[in-house]
Design a protein around this nucleic acid. Structure first.
Lengths: 142, 142
DNA sequence: TATTGTTATACTCTATAACTATA
DNA sequence: TATAGTTATAGAGTATAACAATA
C-alpha cells in the first residue's frame, strides 16, 4: 500500500505535473487547430497514421463509446483525410485508414508538437535518463 | 534556441509524459464523474473553492470564451454548488462563489485525486526532489 | 466608447438505446 | 445469440456574433 503524502515537496511535484498536463493539453489542441482539426480528430488521425484500425478498436483507445467514432471518422472522411476499408476476414468490420493527405497532416501535426521535445533539449542526457527512470517508477512501468 | 531531439531516450521520455498526461486526465474525469460533475464543472468548482471569481476571470483561467462560463455556472448554480454575487465596486461584474455544499464537494474532489500522490509515495524524498528540479527546468520555472 | 455578462446559434464530442448486417 | 457498426437523441462544451447594462 503506497503512502499518501501531503508534505510540501510532494504537493509541489503534484502541482508541477498539473502544469505539465495543462501545457501539454493546450499545445496539443493548438497544434490540432492549426490544421483545422479538433483534438479528437487529431488523436484519431494520429492513431490511424500508426496503423489502420477497426472502428471498435478506435473507441477502445479513445475510451469512448463506439457510436462516437462514427462521427469522428465521418468528418475526417469528408475532408479526405481518412477512409473506411472492408475487412476481408469479417464483413462486419470496417477498418479506418488515413489517406495519403491524412498521413501527411498527421506527420506535420507530430512535428508541430514541440512540447516535451524542446523543453527536454534543456536537459543533459544523464538528466533525461534520470527523468525517464523516475517517470517509469511513478507509472509502475519499471 | 533549444535543440530539437529525436533520439530514442528523448522519445521515450516524451511517451512517458504522454502517459502521465493521459492517466492524469482520466483520473480527473473519473473523480469528477463520481460527484456527477463534468470535467469543466469540476475545474471551475475547484477554482471557486480557492477564491470567488468574476465570470470573465473564470473564462481566462479556462482559456475559453466568456459566453461558455455562463452555462457552466448556470449548471453549478442549479445544483446548489455555486452562486452569483454582485460586485459592489462594479455593477457590471458578477462574482461566482461556491456555496457551502460546493466547497464540500470541491474538498472531497481534491481528496479523491490520488494521482501523482500515491505514485509519488513510491519515490524517496531525494528522488522527489530530483523529479521536482527536473520538472522545474523542463517548464522553465527554474 | 469600452467593458461585463448574457443570449442566440451552430458545431463537435459524449453516452444511451435501438437498429442492421454479419458472425 | 452475439458482435461490429450505425442511427437517433439528448446533454454538455466550444466559438462567434449581437445585445443590455454599466463604466
Amino acid at each position: 500500500m503506497p503512502t499518501r503524502r501531503t508534505d510540501p515537496l510532494t504537493l509541489e511535484v503534484v502541482e508541477l505535473i498539473g502544469t505539465v498536463v495543462a501545457r501539454y493539453h493546450d499545445e496539443y489542441e493548438e497544434a490540432a487547430a492549426q490544421h483545422a482539426l479538433t483534438g479528437a480528430q487529431a488523436r484519431v488521425l494520429g492513431l490511424l497514421s500508426l496503423e489502420p484500425t477497426p472502428m471498435r478498436k478506435i473507441a477502445e483507445k479513445l475510451k469512448c463509446e463506439p457510436s462516437n467514432v462514427t462521427g469522428i471518422i465521418d468528418r475526417l472522411e469528408s475532408r479526405g483525410l481518412a477512409e473506411r476499408r472492408p475487412d476481408p476476414a469479417d464483413r462486419r468490420v470496417k477498418v479506418a485508414a488515413p489517406t495519403e493527405e491524412g498521413r501527411d497532416v498527421a506527420r506535420r501535426l507530430r512535428e508541430s508538437l514541440h512540447f516535451a521535445r524542446e523543453p527536454l533539449g534543456e536537459l543533459t542526457e544523464a538528466e533525461r535518463t534520470l527523468l525517464r527512470d523516475l517517470l517509469r517508477r511513478m507509472l509502475g512501468t519499471a
